[in-house]
Structures are given as structure tokens and as C-alpha cells.
């Protein structure tokens, strides 16, 4: 009996979907807008994340060592820094490397190179380039280096300076901007999703409002709540599925066009290739939110008219 009912509910849901042509069309259009908002927010957060990642990658802390510092001592310091949980990567730049980097940077600057040649010894100290997992963690790392009192065998401090304290203000501002952007992005996403779900919900409620007398008749004929509600829920799910497909199709040329116009602008994230490479995931999100919103809205909207 249950399966006969399920079969009948499915059939009746599909038929009423087709026979209510115009109403179905308008609900689908509204749902396409909702799903486009959701889809757009997926891209927006991808863009935001990739820009933030690139900014984050540009932040680091440099530890400059005195020229007399022993390479072994520096490497052992490097090991202890690497052991810190907050640290993502530590790069060691030796004195010779620093010198050749310096020469490379100033190869068009004859005066500087000449002045360098005047010196008998390499004036540059070795450098540790430290990258944290999160910008807010630089302070802890810098403090660790500062308080550690790393001293050479001869008893002199080996660290010349840690440039975090020069860059502190810039890094702090940056990490707070990043945090705010993250949080704002999340809040906006939520608000947009809630608003568009409400609009869809209202549209479907109107569709079902039109059918309120039908529902009353079904009730009086002795149909059970499941039997009345079922076709509406199926109809809602069908709206969601079709809207999802339309949205995905629309986004194909849109992202293609967008990626051609705006690739450079967004620091190299190619939206079109993001869309195609993450298609499975986006497909699942869009289609399942479509079906979910459609079915749930119908379920809730019918409930109001079931109380005869």
C-alpha cells in the first residue's frame, strides 16, 4: 500500500507541475535567482579566499643575524623555530646567498656595487625567513625569538634584529582586515541566503495558497495528510531540480565571460577554470539546495491548510 501511495504521489506531483505551467514557470524563475545568489556567493568566497591567501603569503618575518654568527648556531635556531606549531615554513638565506641576492637586486646600480667592492668582507648577515600559518601568530613567533636570548658560544647575541617589530603595525592592520573580511563575507553570505530562501518560500506559499480549496476538498474526501502534502512536496522538489539545472547552465557562459574580463583583476584566480574543475561540488550544492528549499517550502506551506 505504501508503495502504491508513493507512486500515486509522484505521478500526481509531476502532473500538477505540468498542468500548472505558468505558475510553475514563475516559481522556477524565482528559484533560479535564489540559486544564482548561492552560486555567486560560492564564487565570491573563492575569490576572497584566493586574494586573502595571496596577501597572507606576502607577510613574513625576517630574522637578521650578526655577521659573526656561526652557521651551525643559525641552523640549530632554525630547527627550534621550525618546531613551533604556528610556523609553516622557515627559509635559510646564507651570507653568500644574501650577498648575491643583493648584487642581483642592484645590478643596475654601479655606485652601490662599487661601494660593496670597497669592503673587504661581506657586510651582510644571514637571514631566516619565517612564514606563519596565520598572520596573527607572528607576534608570538617574534616574541619567542626576542626572549630566547640566543647566544653564540662566545657569549654574544647572534640575532641582529627581527623586522617584525618594524612591521608590527602593518601586520596587525592586515591581519585585522583579513579577519574582518572573513567574518563579513560569512555574515553577508548568511544574510543573502536567508533572504533568498524567504523569497522562494513566499512564492511557493502563494502557489499553494491558490490550491487551498483543493486541499480542503481533498481533506473532506478523506485523504490523509501524507497523501495531500506529497504531490506538493514533489512539485517543489521538481521546481528546485529544474531551477538548479538552469542556474548551472547559465553560469557556464557567465563565468567564461567573467574570467576573460577579470582574470588579472583578481590576482590570477580564473573563475571559469574554478567552475569547471569544481563542477561536481558546485553541482551538488546548487541542485541539493534547490531540491531542499523547494521541498521544504512546500511542506511547510501546505501545513497551514491541512488543519480542516
Amino acid at each position: 500500500m505504501f508503495w502504491i501511495n508513493v507512486k500515486r504521489v509522484l505521478k500526481s506531483g509531476f502532473f500538477s507541475f505540468i498542468r500548472n505551467g505558468f505558475v510553475s514557470l514563475s516559481s522556477i524563475l524565482v528559484m533560479v535567482v535564489t540559486l544564482s545568489v548561492i552560486c555567486g556567493l560560492i564564487f565570491l568566497s573563492a575569490i576572497l579566499n584566493s586574494s586573502l591567501d595571496q596577501v597572507k603569503n606576502k607577510v613574513d618575518v625576517n630574522v637578521y643575524f650578526v655577521t659573526s654568527a656561526n652557521e651551525d648556531e643559525i641552523l640549530s635556531l632554525k630547527k627550534s623555530v621550525e618546531a613551533l606549531l604556528e610556523v609553516e615554513k622557515v627559509t635559510y638565506v646564507s651570507r653568500d646567498q644574501a650577498l648575491s641576492d643583493f648584487k642581483e637586486r642592484h645590478k643596475n646600480d654601479e655606485f652601490t656595487l662599487q661601494a660593496l667592492d670597497e669592503l673587504s668582507d661581506n657586510p651582510l648577515g644571514a637571514v631566516l625567513n619565517i612564514k606563519a600559518k596565520d598572520p596573527s601568530q607572528y607576534e608570538g613567533i617574534a616574541n619567542f625569538l626576542q626572549k630566547g636570548n640566543f647566544i653564540s658560544n662566545a657569549g654574544a647575541p647572534i640575532i641582529d634584529k627581527v623586522n617584525y617589530f618594524q612591521n608590527k603595525v602593518a601586520i596587525d592592520t592586515l591581519s585585522s582586515i583579513i579577519n574582518t573580511a572573513d567574518r563579513l563575507g560569512f555574515i553577508f553570505t548568511l544574510i543573502f541566503i536567508v533572504v533568498s530562501v524567504l523569497i522562494t518560500f513566499n512564492t511557493i506559499r502563494l502557489v499553494i495558497y491558490i490550491s487551498r480549496e483543493e486541499i480542503a476538498v481533498m481533506r473532506l474526501v478523506g485523504a490523509s495528510a501524507f497523501y495531500i502534502r506529497g504531490p506538493f512536496v514533489v512539485g517543489g522538489a521538481v521546481y528546485g531540480f529544474i531551477s538548479g539545472i538552469i542556474t548551472l547552465v547559465i553560469f557556464y557562459p557567465v563565468t567564461f565571460w567573467f574570467s576573460r574580463v577579470a582574470t588579472e583583476l583578481y590576482l590570477g584566480l580564473n573563475i571559469f577554470s574554478y567552475y569547471t574543475s569544481n563542477f561536481g561540488q558546485i553541482f551538488l550544492i546548487v541542485i541539493s539546495s534547490g531540491i531542499g528549499i523547494g521541498a521544504l517550502s512546500s511542506y511547510l506551506a501546505v501545513r497551514k491548510y491541512l488543519a480542516v
Binding site: 500500500m1 501511495n5 476538498v217 481533498m218 474526501v221
Partner: peptide, 26 residues
Amino acid sequence: IVFQDFRLLPYKTVFENIAFAMEAAG
């Protein structure tokens, strides 16, 4: 029940309107 205003289901054919009452009764 028979009402003054008929109260048939508008998007169902005559056959389906009657069949619906039977389906509802299982």
C-alpha cells in the same frame, strides 16, 4: 459530500477527480 459550488479539483480530469477519492480511500 456534494457541495453547491461543486469543488472539483481544477487540474484533474473527470476520471482523475473521481479516482482521487478512491486513491485517498486506499
